[in-house]
């Protein structure tokens, strides 16, 4: 009977196409659509702050260099992972992440909570020459980041695109994006104060690459790495391994 039916189906290309579409759509619809409507999918985190323009620029460098190929940003709900990397990751922690960078492979360690674990100086030295800091490392060197001036002019466009997708950047944040990026890495400049004003007192304003007169791609990337896992304390409040977030190293 089924075979008889199939022999009929095989005789019409359009019918076959429709049958394929029908069979192939069910799984995706059932698994993906509810993720947008079920409240429990993403937790509440009222203290969650946004990426500053400098951190967003740093994130885009992380994306550009394909760091996700070797580093995950997703601590699984397994004892050894929580003990090695910190509280397991919550969905809310990546709610503004486009794309998400959960990764699929750990040639290097997970970075979901790397922020504050090492000093800026360590990160800069490590990115310039990983083997100078960790002799057995197989990570590529990113020497040129410290030499490359960060392109800040387009940052308002980036924030605007993000806002169009639902990230709550204000008009003031968008207008001042380039100045804020500069200010966050030059603590003595006139632009430094506005950053904390717009993004919160917890924002880290300092010369990430050690040079306070120029904003480089190194500044941006280190600023991003130093904020990873620190946009909200939700993971320390709600999970099995709750506790105080550790004091950051600068």
């Amino acid at each position: 009977m089924a075979e008889f039916f199939h022999r009929k189906l095989e005789r019409t290309a359009i019918g076959f196409v429709l049958a394929i579409i029908a069979a192939a759509s069910v799984g995706g619809i059932v698994e993906i659509a509810p993720l947008f409507t079920i409240d429990e999918t993403v937790e509440e985190a009222p203290d969650m702050r946004l990426y500053t323009p400098l951190e967003l620029a740093g994130r885009n460098i992380y994306v550009r260099e394909g760091c996700y190929a070797c580093h995950s940003q997703m601590i699984r709900t397994l004892r050894d992972e929580v003990e090695r990397y910190g509280p397991y990751s919550l969905a809310v922690e990546s709610q503004y992440d486009r794309p998400m960078l959960w990764g699929s492979k750990r040639t290097g360690p997970d970075l979901a909570r790397i922020g504050g674990k090492y000093s800026d100086f360590w990160h800069v030295a490590h990115l310039i020459d990983p083997r100078a800091v960790v002799p057995q490392s197989n990570m590529p060197a990113y020497r040129w980041l410290a030499r490359t001036t960060l392109d800040t002019a387009d940052l308002p466009l980036h924030l605007r695109a993000q806002r169009r997708l639902g990230v709550p950047y204000t008009e003031a944040m968008i207008e001042n994006a380039a100045r804020d990026a500069y200010g966050q890495a030059t603590p003595d400049s006139a632009f430094a104060d506005g950053v904390a004003e717009r993004y919160g007192a917890a924002t880290q304003v300092r010369a990430f690459d050690g040079v306070a007169t120029e904003v480089t791609e190194m500044d941006a990337l280190v600023a991003y790495l130093q904020v990873l896992g620190r946009l909200t304390d939700a993971a320390y409040r709600d999970t099995a391994a709750a506790g105080e977030p550790p004091e950051p190293v600068e």
Partner: peptide, 16 residues
């Protein structure tokens, strides 16, 4: 560009 999918939804769409 920035993808319209974010965070956990992006993860699901990406691996789908």
């Amino acid at each position: 560009s920035y993808t319209v999918w974010a965070g956990v939804q992006d993860a699901m769409v990406q691996w789908w």
